[in-house]
Design a protein around this nucleic acid. Structure first.
Lengths: 395, 395
DNA sequence: TGACTTCATTCAGATCTCGTATTAAATACA
DNA sequence: TGTATTTAATACGAGATCTGAATGAAGTCA
């Protein structure tokens, strides 16, 4: 049984959320149009908008005539009025981002970090944003972690790259973020959140069914089904690196052969393209891209794209996404990867003739996961699950 | 934007649905306990229960003392009061089932049929149930089809076994089921619905994340994530037969090698076990099971289980289900398949040490899909999405 | 200038939930 | 046996919400 409280205020929250979603997705609109879009009556929309403007969450634009009739007085979400805080820890950096209800990215910040100081580092970075932007404007916080997250959405079951096991970062984040915002920091897998970010701000805009693949040293995946993250029963879903989609003879670090990441992970890419060893996957990809006038590099990338596409064909059979976004080091190489990946799809996906996912390069950079985390932090408000804050009235 | 109407009656519907779900999942209870379980106030529960009993959807049991205090007057869902109609078309049979709100299977019926007359046949079968049980007790109907369903949930994009393409069965079903119930028959993939059925009535009881695999001539899959069906953007999700999880040399009917169904489909099973050709997968499996005292058969089934488990390992990496249910011809062979499948999981699923799905034999027979369809037809009422009917008061 | 059109607000009416007080029906105990 | 205690269910008033119709507002069009 879902534990959400029930009552007359729930109804108002749900309807407020409808209005917020409409404003976010369709942009500013007058009350009459909002009523159409939400299915609510004009009277109700009027009341909700009045409430939102009084709380300085929405503002009224200057009235604009448009043909005959009384001119519309457009209502818009006030930029930066309500914010979600996203954070990310990774092996060599931490990041933080703030996104507002309108979907605008208000701030992003990245900072190098080592593994040991990561939690404190990301806490400080988040706290800086909160300090600068005002704590009472934030409605939630979420942390992206490259690892497996328990179903409680609080505990990191296993993040080998960070050497975390059973860590609950929320407890130390509370120290930095304060008791209010730090009270309840949700933790989520970084690839999942990057998928969310691409769906809201990047390459998968307006798609409810998306698959996100990120090429790093290994291979990460995030799945969006009907706009929701697919986490699986234990929060372990989306682990795609060791699926047997790779070349059957390729040796993988895990000791087996044929893993997908043994064929398309960073090392395989470097070997294919004849690129020297590199720490940073994205930088390596940029360096390869710079050599794209060499025929051998182009051939190598074509082969790499084919390998990526073969795996996508299988995932598409299972999940049938509308769009597959290639992030991480795939992104800068996409111009060369996508055509052969799509060709592989056509060849290998049985239903490709009827329908196949669109392949796209990720549009977001290194802070994709942090952006997704910020987006996730706003989720409860846009769902109507959580109440809006009551920000002290700010001019 | 979800188009659900909004208003004070929506609230009542949602709360009524809470009460219904509680009664369904936790069984009969007094008003006080219902208030606890749903989070509603006693007054509200009382009003909702009064409404439900007046409409003969719920009934009051005889009051029972239990320790001190006023005795509880338990409320229960009246068996058969509100029904969902499920139907299934398949190559050689059609089936229909009726399930009530309490989750009781009120009726199931199966009938041989050829492909050509399938739609009319299933329409007639459904109409028989409706006639016998009373049309006004049904709140929805759903049809299971072995094929790809469009995202509109009305059109069969492609069902090769039925030789259907772009068929909209609802239009001819309306003739049999009448304008009310036949108005809006939802169509869904049969494996998806079988997964739903196993989750509500069978082997995956009480699991929100389940994967259903059905062995037939080919191989079908249904995915349940957080209790919802995973359909993908085009309704094509769950097509797992031609994933490259099989023996690399096994030739598949599709022309490629290595498809999973080439290794675990009916034909592969028959060859492994030395069983003569068979039309009916389940009957073939029963015949093999009867020979399970032969060592060679046991070895063959162990190998088959391993092959099944290898594929499950990959699917579990992607989806992380709590439970995997083996249906179709796998079910009767499960005693011999499950141990080696689980061993394969341990060997191949990287996170198996921390968490791996439970493997189970499907508990439902040939009408699993029809049951799931009936369950699906009740979904809107239990969601609070649709209103309850107003059944003419029946004794 | 006056009719018309479209947008927004106001107001009465209906529905819903909640908290508190009240009634009901059993047990525990003197 | 009779009274206190305990738990269940209902009654009722208060508060919140949505809706539809009426009213007011602010433009265009002729």
């Amino acid at each position: 049984m879902s534990l959400a409280p029930v009552g007359t205020e729930t109804l108002r929250r749900q309807n407020t959320a409808r209005v917020l979603r409409s404003l976010r997705e369709e942009g500013p609109a007058g009350r009459a149009r909002l009523a159409e879009l939400t299915g609510l009556s004009r009277a109700t929309v009027g009341a909700i908008v009045a409430d939102l403007t009084e709380r300085t969450i929405a503002t009224e634009g200057s009235s604009r005539a448009q043909g005959r009739g009384r001119p519309v007085r457009p209502v818009a979400l006030r930029p930066g009025a309500v914010l979600g805080l996203g954070m990310e820890v990774n092996v060599d950096y931490v990041a933080a981002a703030a996104v507002d209800l309108a979907g605008r990215v208000v701030a992003t910040r990245t900072r190098p970090s080592d593994v040991d100081g990561a939690v404190d580092g990301v806490g400080r970075l988040g706290a800086e944003l909160v300090e600068e932007l005002g704590e009472d404007r934030f409605v939630g916080a979420c942390l992206a972690v490259p690892g497996l997250i328990e179903r409680d959405h609080r505990t990191v079951a296993w993040a080998p790259n960070l050497r975390w096991e059973g860590v609950r970062p929320s407890e130390s984040l509370r120290r930095h973020l304060g008791p209010d915002l730090g009270q309840d920091v949700v933790v989520e897998n970084d690839a999942n959140l990057a998928a969310l970010a691409e769906a809201h701000h990047g390459a998968a805009l307006d798609h409810q069914h998306a698959l996100y693949l990120t090429g790093t040293i290994g291979l990460g995946g995030g799945i969006l089904e009907s706009g929701r993250l697919v986490r699986g029963g234990g929060g372990f879903a989306g682990e795609i690196g060791h699926l047997p989609f790779g070349d059957r003879d390729a040796e993988c670090g895990c000791g087996r052969r044929g893993c997908w990441e043994a064929s398309v992970g960073l090392e395989a890419m470097l070997e294919l393209t004849g690129e020297p060893a590199h720490d940073d996957p994205v930088a390596a990809a940029a360096s390869v891209a710079a050599r794209s006038d060499e025929a051998s590099v182009r051939r190598a990338l074509e082969e790499l794209g084919r390998r990526v596409g073969l795996g996508i064909a299988s995932l598409a059979s299972i999940l049938d996404p509308d769009v597959v976004v290639l992030g991480g080091y795939f992104a800068p190489l996409s111009p060369w990867l996508l055509p052969s990946a799509d060709a592989a799809l056509l060849e290998r996906l049985p239903t490709a003739g009827r329908r196949r996912p669109t392949l796209r390069a990720g549009a977001l950079g290194i802070d994709a996961a942090a952006l997704g985390a910020a987006e996730h932090a706003l989720g409860a408000v846009l769902d109507g699950t959580a109440a809006l804050p009551d920000p002290s009235v700010v001019a």
